[in-house]
Simulated scan of single mutants.
Amino acid sequence: MTNTPSNDQTLDTSAEQVTLMDQLKQVELFNGRAAMLGIVIGIVVEGLTGVGIAHQIGLGALVDGYAACRTQFLPFCF
């Protein structure tokens, strides 16, 4: 007696893999769309308020260079 899976088990496993791949495609599609929407919203807010995206999410001090030089996050200063 061999330990090879029967045809039913092989078909079941391949059907599960197809289902998982379809779910992964849907999740990645949603993730990409959410990221694009976030960037567009950030750009619109930047256009309306003049505050950059980095400042909107709290990383403005690093972009400005002051905090980067003061806390030595970067090997150079602006």
Rank of each mutant, 00 (worst) to 15 (best):
G32T: 03
D12P: 00
A15E: 14
T71A: 10
T71Q: 14
M1F: 13
F78D: 09
M1R: 15
G65A: 06
S6I: 08
H55C: 10
V51Q: 07
I57K: 07
A54I: 05
Q17L: 13
Q72I: 07
Y66A: 13
L29A: 06
Q56D: 13
C69T: 04
M21W: 01
F78I: 03
G32A: 05
V45C: 04
L48R: 06
V51S: 02
R70W: 09
D12C: 01
F76N: 04
R33G: 09
T71Y: 15
M21G: 00
T49H: 01
Q9K: 14
Q17K: 07
G50M: 11
L59H: 13
D64T: 08
K25Y: 02
A54F: 14
T49M: 04
I43E: 13
L48Y: 10
M21I: 01
D8H: 08
A67I: 02
N31T: 07
A67H: 13
A35Q: 08
A61H: 12
D8Q: 14
C69A: 11
T2A: 11
G58H: 11
V63W: 05
T19H: 04
A15N: 11
G65W: 03
T10V: 15
I57N: 10
G60S: 03
S14V: 12
N31Y: 03
I57C: 11
Q9T: 09
T2R: 13
N7G: 07
G50E: 10
M1S: 15
A34T: 05
I57R: 10
G58K: 10
E46C: 05
T13W: 14
V44S: 02
L59N: 12
V18D: 15
R70M: 12
G60P: 01
Q56F: 09
I41A: 12
F30M: 02
A54K: 11
V18Q: 12
Q17H: 03
L24F: 00
C69K: 13
S6L: 14
F30T: 05
C77G: 06
N7Y: 07
T10P: 00
T49C: 04
L29G: 10
A34V: 08
T10A: 12
Q17D: 09
M36A: 15
T19K: 06
A61R: 07
G60L: 03
E46A: 14
P75Y: 05
D8S: 14
G60H: 02
I43H: 05
N7D: 15
E16Q: 15
R33P: 00
V27Y: 04
T71H: 10
S6C: 12
C69Y: 03
K25M: 02
Q23E: 06
F76D: 04
V27N: 02
T2L: 09
L37H: 02
A15M: 08
G65F: 05
T19L: 08
N7S: 13
T19G: 00
N3I: 09
L74P: 00
Q56N: 13
F30I: 06
T2G: 10
L62W: 04
F30C: 00
G32M: 01
P75I: 02
E16S: 09
V40P: 00
L59W: 13
G32I: 01
G47Q: 08
G38F: 05
